[in-house]
Amino acid sequence: MFRYALTIAQRIIQQIIRDRRTLALILIVPVVVMTIIWLSFPEALGTLDYVAPALLATLALFFGFLLTGISFLRERSQGTLERLMASPVTRADIVLGYLLGFFLFALLQSLIIVLFTVYALNIHYTGAVWQIFIFQTVVLIGAINLGIFISAFAKNEFQMVQFIPLIILPQVFLCGLLWPVAQMSNYLQWISRFLPLTYAVDGLRNIMLYGKTLNEVGGDLAALAGFAIGMSIITGLSLRRGVNG
């Protein structure tokens, strides 16, 4: 099993490294966003403490979804997916390969956000860094699979971008990044319970701000793991779409 996943991951890494501008954007955008937020709250530093973990989760979802989605869409439209499906590679290889390839950059991005907020913006977190990364891993697996899955429903990059307001924005509004979930009306709270980003933000805040352990945010982690596993399965099954015509 999974014999070719590493080969595919390696190819994705080659692709991103050769695409200098995309690579630069992946690394610079989070720094710019964090700085803008930092500049908008110069006095109330407490706000940034509160926003940073939520932003970490949001960027992971956004990045994982959009970059994987678009590059998978291109894999479909440029015909290389057809080539892969005609080769000895299995569907599991493809999904796992994508996961590993994009995971590397997503994790690098998370690392930059954490280091930048801690060392450049002087924000203090109590949680252990490795726990933040384990938690982020689970968030990213869900996001990357979501991107691949949604790419099956888009015929071009324009359509893929249109899915952002549909799939990502509601999660951002309802996850507690902008205002606490507890202050929202009942039915919005109820909806937010079905959105993975809500659990991601809650878990990361608990780890980073309140120094909780992975064990203590087990509920959030379980919800996110459920989403990640469910998405992986659906994604594997959806791969044939667009190849069979």
Partner: peptide, 9 residues
């Protein structure tokens, strides 16, 4: 269709 990875050499 020539099905290749555009960014790769």
């Amino acid at each position: 269709q020539p099905s290749l990875y555009q960014e790769l050499s």
